[in-house]
Design a protein around this nucleic acid. Structure first.
Length: 775
DNA sequence: GAGCACTGC
């Protein structure tokens, strides 16, 4: 399972060099002061008072894309210092690492944190720490040497041999980059840097495709998904003395499930951990922790005689004041209001100070960019110049990086036109003014329709605050909200958690696989509608994951172990059956389908499009998108001379293609272990032979076992009508099937934007649907 | 002939 050399494939685009003392990765500011000479670790507040950094003198500022911070060759050893009372040492030769740590706001709270966590009966601690407080790196280091964190040998009920319980602290992150980078950082601070070939160390990490857990690891960073997988094998988390849940305010689906499982462990059968308590530390960057406190507090009230045993600690961050300005009355035209505001700020506010504007999406951004460029040409020569830079996820990394660099010409104000990518994921340096249009595109699942919608909706108060905060990173700032104060007050406090916006199919399978019989009774901070859970149960039953009585089947258990959605798991299991026997082919297709964004990039210019289409002809197949993906993987794997050039010609995203290859290797390995494959296929490159039409039919029929509900028939008027629900769907223009008329289609995605679209489409025969449905 | 935030096993 481990892929030791896969760090090079880790996504890098979210890692943005912010200033000389820190980097921002996935919304997290990580100090790199310890890697640098001590002079660079001066406190931010001091810089602010005599702020003179103009965008143009920060020539070093750029996304550091391919350089994970390397530990210094002679990493300072402070293994024993970490926990000592060296705060009052203050010697002449102070360790720069320790100095940097000591300047973090959380450092002053370490005794308090230790005391509260140690206290008997306090099992849940909520720490609210603003960005830059240092909570992610320091909290585990404050705790791992505490007596309660020792490994114990205990006797468990019904077991002869003694087992170990505790000893490690788990700390979860929503994103892989954050988990690995934090582990690197903390491993250096703890005196045992990772990745130097040393067999032992205090700090490790475990994320998909990359596991580094040295012998003696006491602090382990994981992604939420990885800890959920560990729960399959270790339902009581016996490895751990404490679990730290970081960034809970993001309310990912995985973190909501984790919270439920932790609550069950906390207030369930303590004998299963040999009476050794599990400490739970919840960390949030936003103050809205009422739901969390109530969730764990209620547990305490139910499970114990006394009331709440949830402790709350608040730690200040480092943020400059931001003045909020509202519109006096609702604006009739957002785009128009936005442009006027940009020009007003540009003319009235001093330089330096760039503008960050939050817009709905690509379309609005491109339109605004054109209008600003038009306006810029009309500016008088004595007025500073203005330049508009787009920033959204679909842009290439190179195009995105422009937004992080200061404007090329002097006396120029940069206007970054961004989606909510700039709200949490990345930090744009140099911003003093934020313009917030008050909306964002949100994906929402409609369980009854079995489809998703992606529409612009008002943001939450919490989002609005977050957006405004982007103006106060480097000095006092201003935020112009293109809506009224009343409108702000009427916004929802926080965004809907993912569990209420997503299909809960996977979540229900996760619960069932971890022994939850009654999923409706599972403790959740926000429970989905019963109808959504019922739909998921029915769907899982159809997929063969649940038996008629609702218990999980062997197939369901296997599906839950795979890093795939439940329908794709069902497809893989079908492929292993003697009827189809096409596991390798299905893995090739699934690898491409699940490697992040589409591996086929969109081509903008028309002449470029023709050339790319000509090159793509050799991978495109008339059977549809699945067989096209499969062929792409097989040709890519067979390519022996220059894979990068091969991708470039076809406008295939190289990073996603490498990721697909990674997934393919992982799935092959897992299929071997799960006995879906009898032997490992020969290594690449193997000569390419086009898939026979018979094999292609088998592959598509396997996919029907997972997606029979996602099919549509050609109607007499030439439209497609879904078999379930009788909705009209159009084939999305990104599909190779676009514009074609076949008697029936199967699609893997169903999205409503301004039309009902079917994506990832394959041609099928009507009789196949009945076949798959009527098994 | 579309036009779309982010992430994870």
């Amino acid at each position: 399972m481990a892929a030791p050399n896969s760090t090079e494939h880790a996504p890098k685009r979210r890692k943005v060099r912010q200033d000389s003392g820190s980097v921002t990765i996935g919304g997290k500011v990580i100090s790199v002061a310890g890697y640098l000479s001590s002079s660079s670790s001066k406190p931010k507040q001091a810089e602010a008072s005599n702020l003179k950094s103009t965008p143009s003198n920060d020539s070093q500022e750029q996304p550091s894309q391919a350089t994970p911070q390397q530990p210094p060759k002679s990493a300072p050893r402070e293994r024993n210092e970490t926990h000592s009372k060296s705060r009052n040492a203050g010697g002449a030769k102070e360790n720069p690492l320790l100095k940097a740590r000591r300047e973090l706001p959380i450092w002053q709270h370490q005794d308090e944190i230790r005391t509260v966590v140690k206290r008997a009966g306090t099992d849940v601690i909520v720490i609210v720490g603003e960005t830059g407080s240092g909570k992610s790196t320091q909290v585990p280091q404050f705790l791992y040497q505490e007596p309660w964190c020792k490994r114990h040998k205990v006797k468990l009920p019904g077991r002869q041999e003694e087992v170990y319980v505790g000893g490690m602290i788990a700390i979860t992150q929503p994103r892989r980059v954050a988990a690995t980078t934090l582990a690197q950082r903390v491993s250096i601070e703890a005196g045992t840097p990772l990745g130097k070939g040393r067999p032992d160390g205090l700090v490790g990490y475990s994320v998909r495709f990359d596991h580094q857990v040295p012998k003696g690891t006491r602090i382990k960073f994981l992604t939420e998904g990885t800890l959920l997988q560990e729960l399959l094998r270790d339902p009581y988390l016996r490895q751990y003395s404490a679990v730290v849940i970081d960034e809970i305010h993001e309310r990912s689906l995985d973190v909501d499930l984790l919270a439920g499982f932790l609550k069950q462990i906390l207030f369930g059968d303590q004998t299963q951990r040999g009476g050794i308590p599990l400490k739970v530390i919840i960390m949030s960057a936003t103050a809205e922790v009422g739901v969390i406190q109530e969730f764990f507090g209620r547990a305490a009230a139910e499970g114990r005689e006394k009331g709440s045993n949830v402790e709350l600690l608040r730690i200040k961050g480092r943020q400059f004041p931001v003045t909020i300005l509202y519109e006096p009355r609702p604006v009739p035209d957002l785009q128009d209001a936005l442009l006027k505001k940009i020009f007003k700020v540009h003319v009235e506010e001093p330089l330096p100070g760039d503008i960050l504007a939050f817009l709905n999406g690509q379309e609005d951004i491109e339109a605004a960019q054109r209008l600003i460029e038009e306006y810029a040409t009309t500016l008088a020569s004595n007025v500073p110049k203005i330049v508009a830079v787009p920033l959204y996820g679909q842009l290439s990394i190179e195009a995105q990086s422009v937004a992080f660099r200061p404007a090329k010409t002097p006396r120029t104000r940069k206007v970054v036109l961004a989606t909510n990518i700039a709200e949490t994921s990345v930090t744009v340096p140099g911003v003093r003014y934020v313009i917030d249009c008050g909306k964002a595109k949100v994906k929402q699942y409609r369980p009854r329709l079995g489809m998703e919608s992606l529409l612009a909706k008002p943001i939450s108060k919490s989002s609005a605050v977050q957006r405004a905060g982007r103006a106060g990173r480097e000095g006092p700032g201003k935020c112009f909200r293109l809506y009224t104060e009343d409108a702000f007050n009427s916004l929802q406090d926080s965004d809907l958690p993912e569990i209420l916006r997503n299909d809960v199919l996977g979540a229900v399978l996760t619960m069932k696989a971890r022994g939850i019989q009654d999923v409706m009774a599972f403790p959740l901070m926000d429970a989905p509608e019963p109808a959504a859970i019922e739909m998921a149960l029915l769907h899982l039953h159809f997929l063969g994951a649940l038996a008629d009585d609702g218990t999980i089947t062997a197939a369901g258990q296997t599906m839950a172990r795979f890093p795939l959605s439940a329908p794709l798991g069902a497809v893989l299991l079908a492929a292993a059956g003697p009827e189809f026997d096409c596991v390798l082919e299905v893995i090739d297709a699934i690898s491409c389908l699940t490697s992040g964004d589409d591996i086929f990039m969109h081509v903008h210019s028309e002449e470029g499009q023709e050339e790319v289409e000509a090159y793509r002809k050799d991978v495109q197949r008339r059977e549809g998108d699945i067989i096209t993906y499969l062929t792409t993987m097989q040709m890519y794997a067979a390519e022996n001379s220059d894979r990068i050039d091969w991708c470039k010609k076809r406008k295939i995203n190289i990073r996603n293609m490498k990721q697909a290859l990674n997934i393919r290797r992982q799935l092959r390995g897992m299929c071997l272990k799960e006995k879906l494959l009898s032997e490992m296929p020969p290594p690449d490159p193997q000569p390419f032979t086009p898939l026979s039409p018979e094999k292609a039919e088998s592959v598509i029929k396997c996919f029907l076992r997972g997606f029979a509900m996602r099919t549509a028939m050609l109607a007499p008027d030439g439209s497609f009508v879904t078999v379930h629900g009788k909705h009209v769907v159009a084939i999305h223009p990104s599909s190779v099937m676009h514009g074609q008329k076949k008697e029936a289609i199967m699609f893997l995605e169903h999205v409503y934007t301004n039309k009902n679209y079917a994506k990832k489409v394959s041609a099928i025969q009507a009789t196949w649907i009945a076949e798959a449905l009527g098994r």
